[in-house]
């Protein structure tokens, strides 16, 4: 049980897919101009992550190693198509604003990375715990980035839903650059920098990058 909890908890902070492992950067930058789109994207990605994790973990002994990655991609693409059709059917407005980025969940390195490095080696229960943890970690990261950009760029929170909050007062002049591509890069750069600074303080004995983030994120090494 403790093991399962560990599998779940690591995705939240220590191995956060966005801030530590830098996985799935495209949607992280593209759909975080509001907290609404960030949250929806996070949930959609989590669904695929969990679904693909379960199926890939169940099939791990049936799929020969040579075609493992193509099979995973097909399975992931199947889940993404399901998400695409259902979100267009039940959340047409948000689906329209995410447009291209729902199908692009297929190539989110986070999902393939977790399937390949974790789900394909572990029993289903641990695969689920890991996928849920990573999904929650991804979702909070996207919502958080979206919230920063939305507050600075529009002065609101959760635009386009019934729960829209006006955060800033009348005096506030929205910084529209925050909603534009440059704002995405700048916000993420600063947030990762702050995240690392906080980590460094709390783990001042551990060297920077010394934590266990190297198992999947091979890209990370050369960044």
């Amino acid at each position: 049980m403790l093991k399962l909890f560990k599998d779940f908890a690591k995705g939240l902070w220590k191995e956060n897919p966005v801030f530590v492992m830098l996985l799935g950067m495209c949607p992280v930058l593209a759909v975080t101009n509001t907290a609404t789109t960030g949250l929806f994207m996070g949930v959609a990605t989590s669904f695929v992550l969990i679904g693909a994790g379960i199926v890939n973990s169940l099939l791990k002994n049936l799929i020969p190693a040579e075609v493992r990655i193509p099979s995973f991609i097909v399975i992931i693409a199947t889940f993404v198509t399901i998400v695409d059709y259902t979100s267009r059917a039940f959340f047409p407005d948000i689906a329209a604003s995410l447009a291209l980025f729902i199908p692009l969940i297929i190539v989110n390195c986070l999902i393939l990375g977790r399937s390949e490095s974790f789900a394909s080696k572990m029993p289903v229960s641990r695969a689920i715990a890991d996928a849920v943890g990573m999904g929650v970690g991804f979702t909070w990261a996207l919502t958080f980035l979206g919230a920063i950009r939305e507050i600075l760029g529009f002065g609101t929170l959760f635009r386009g839903t019934e729960f829209t909050l006006q955060v800033m007062g009348e005096w506030f002049e929205p910084l529209s650059i925050m909603t534009l591509p440059p704002g995405a890069f700048l916000t993420l750069g600063v947030v990762i920098g702050v995240f690392r600074a906080v980590e460094n303080k709390s783990l001042s004995l551990t060297r920077l990058f010394g934590n266990s983030s190297l198992n999947t994120a091979k890209e990370e090494k050369s960044i």
Binding site: F185, G189, I192, R196
Partner: peptide, 12 residues
């Protein structure tokens, strides 16, 4: 700065 090395500075 140490915490900006690598990806963060690249993003900026």
């Amino acid at each position: 700065p140490e915490s900006l090395k690598g990806a963060p500075i690249a993003l900026l």
